[in-house]
């Protein structure tokens, strides 16, 4: 068994109003930043055990699928590395 470190990104689908992103955008613009279309998502990090990298990937994607709500969110496996490379 190998240990891996996974980073999962969960975001609202495009086109769904994100009031949190809008509030952040308003503050940023107030500070003088010329930004637009700010969206707020979520990052989940975890360590997981698997016999191989493909299986670790499969397991991490299965976690992401369980935690994201397909009605309004999309998920992606942002990174997957052997744990010793992260430490």
């Amino acid at each position: 068994m190998m240990k891996y470190h996974a980073t999962i990104l969960i975001e609202l689908k495009d086109g769904i109003l994100d009031p949190q992103g809008r509030a952040v955008e308003g503050v940023l613009r107030g500070l003088g930043y010329r930004v637009e279309n700010v969206r707020v998502g979520r990052v989940l990090e975890m360590e997981l055990e698997a016999p191989s990298e493909p299986e670790a990937r499969e397991s991490a994607l299965s976690v992401a699928k369980a935690l994201a709500n397909p009605v309004m969110e999309v998920y992606a496996l942002e990174a997957l590395k052997p744990l010793q490379e992260v430490l």
């Binding site: 769904i16 109003l17 009031p19 949190q20 509030a23 709500n69 009605v71 309004m72």
Partner: peptide, 17 residues
Amino acid sequence: LTEAGLLPGALLANTNL
């Protein structure tokens, strides 16, 4: 109930936060 898929749709943050 919506998260569990027993009812369709989802409940999101109020527009005014």
